[in-house]
Design a protein around this nucleic acid. Structure first.
Lengths: 213, 213, 213, 213
DNA sequence: CATTAATCGAGACGGTACGTCTGGTCTTCCC
DNA sequence: GGGAAGACCAGACGTACCGTCTCGATTAATG
């Protein structure tokens, strides 16, 4: 169902090539897609979600908040979740560069605490939970969410283990996938299902449970 | 927000008292609440959710499908999720009576495989996922879901451990809560987040990971 | 295409039966159709046409001006012209009771001057011209306009002649249809086509041209 | 409102001068206005009106049908009625050269039957009726229509009378304006208002009614 | 036995948002 | 500088449901 491409046609180079203060102001033209409109929409969507909750996000509301015509949204996205998906991915670009302190447990702790905080407390996490919720009854979105966030995130999550393996911290048969699942799933469970807090000490206890070698 | 009581005033006794022909057909009267209308609504809600997805469930749709006036729904419920919540709880009443074979690992396996199947594959599971999804941006519903399902379910989930403890199968300091979380959270994670299947062998591997004594 | 009945179900008797200030205020109920909403819509349509011209009349505008939901308009009418048609007919109900002075020429003068004034100057005339204009490219409306206004109006227009015939003012072979056409068509021509004024003296000259016996 | 001149700068001679292969195809150029685009637009407007009715004519539709960009239309016309006005006037250039048989009644009959046919049956008549309709709520258009069509047409209509006067067929005080109105207004009335047919015999009966001397 | 109270099906009402469609403006590129 | 292309803002379209309200019918308990 999500057929439309969100940011087509416009090479970054072209954008950069436009000189001066750049980001040429335009109202309908042949620049191709308006970058101003695009970002205004994504920001408006984000803000509305946080301020008014998922049900409070409407295409009409986004359009009004972004100062944009509804059709400009429908031209590039198919639904409000589609917009929110893009807004979320944009948010995640600034995502954590995993730390690499030379000690696995320390790296894991740092990474997982950050992840838990993002999921449970940040605005970005609110967007993620809304999307995951929607994905429960929208398999297309589910697929997209897995492809564009969960898989890449998995790679980022595995990074500390890979570093540790290089350092010889792990015994050879150590199953990183299983270990990761042992760490992540309780965090997601608490955030999504039981609503229990995910404190720093809780994360530490999860890590302590791991048998590394 | 959910102020209304779903099934007030009418003691189970009264229902039981009217056996045989009973279940008086009535269109507005002083029998009190119409049991026929109530069950028709819950069934219609269930069916609509499965057939048309969460967004396809509307109060008007339920009313039409149940052959009931909209107001009859609004008299007893506050929203479509409120109806679905009741429908879900009704479904869960037939829930598993936990097996008690005398062996913890066997009991756990039986119980967890059944739970996973319910969550991932059954219509009831679809309703649950929809409710949990909605609960991500509806804290009132979240509370209700935890109180009325997740907590009671936790007790059912713990039952095998309690039996084992009585039998002396567990060392004294064994943390059943932690153990349960280790078992449950990967199942929920796979169902809700990663979409991976929860096979019987996977459940067995989870159990094997537990150190019981 | 115009399938909906505009004023169903509510017998005049019932309306009359409601005494005193009557016209029960209600917002959605089982009074049947709301007379208040109905008249508010027709008035709003009338006013908008006069103030903003035909193109300026929109269903949304009518709804807003009448303080009514769009759907309430769509429930009972099919299009803005349908609404305007009803508004026009309602206006015409208060139409002239033809005078009957005992003298044909005097009666005709009175009737035609009134008609010309209505067509050219009144708000009702503006609505009529708009409808007739629309009827030029909407044959369904054309039919309805002829059936519901032009034919009945013709009967009213003929009334003075009938009275005169009863009085023996006309020679037997006098063709009233032809005479009427001779009188009416220049009036419509001036109003619709040439834009020339239709003064009282002009009407008199038209009548003078007639050879009555 | 109608500020733009519709056919500037380009003499008919030039058009005629470019025969055969010519009619230079161009997509934006320095030839000045494209005659090809202009005629394509007027034809497309005409055709759309006949095929789809007045509401079915849109600037976008004309542009698409004429294979022309919207802006090319907006550059030279202000509205769809403006385009249709030009299309209509273009059509009327081929208008009847009034016959001059030497007999007034014969000339009138010939002329009026042609006029009635044009108004009621031809595509050009459809365009005229649409414009007249629009003129009912657009006084600017009304003025233009009267200036550019109705007045000139009146002169054409009077031509038979003038010839007759030269021939001495009319008594001196004969009021040609009044006579013309007597002839024309019933025709317009039938076409625009009552929808009755305007047959040849009907036109003859109108003429017979005239007292010429 | 009449009155009263509770509930039901029905459906009109004022609203919000949907997703689609035109209209008219503007900018760029091509000739 | 005309013309093609096409993104943009604006806003009306007709539809679907929302949640509220009132009706008239039905039935049971009350007095």
């Amino acid at each position: 169902m999500i057929r439309k491409v969100s940011k087509p046609r416009r090479a970054a180079k072209e954008v950069a090539a436009k000189p001066g203060p750049a980001m040429v102001e335009h109202r309908g033209n042949r620049h191709g897609r308006s970058e101003g409109a695009r970002t205004a929409i994504l920001e408006a969507a984000d803000n509305l979600l946080v301020e008014r909750g998922f049900a409070g996000v409407t295409i009409e509301g986004i359009a009004a908040a972004a100062g944009v015509a509804k059709q400009t949204i429908y031209r590039w996205w198919t639904s409000k979740t589609d917009v929110l998906m893009d807004a979320f991915l944009e948010d995640m670009i600034q995502a954590s560069v995993p730390s690499d302190s030379g000690d696995l447990k320390s790296d894991l702790k740092h990474h997982l605490v950050g992840l838990a905080k993002m999921l449970a407390e940040s605005d970005t996490g609110a967007v993620f939970r809304a999307l995951l919720a929607e994905a429960q009854h929208d398999s297309e979105l589910a697929t997209r969410l897995r492809t564009q966030f969960i898989e890449p995130q998995r790679l980022r999550d595995l990074f500390p283990f890979e570093q540790a393996r290089k350092r010889g911290e792990l015994y050879p048969e150590f199953d990183t996938d299983a270990a990761l699942e042992q760490l992540l799933s309780p965090i997601y469970y608490r955030v999504l299902v039981s609503g229990q807090p995910v404190s720093q000490s809780y994360v530490e206890s999860l890590i302590r449970r791991l048998v590394l070698r």
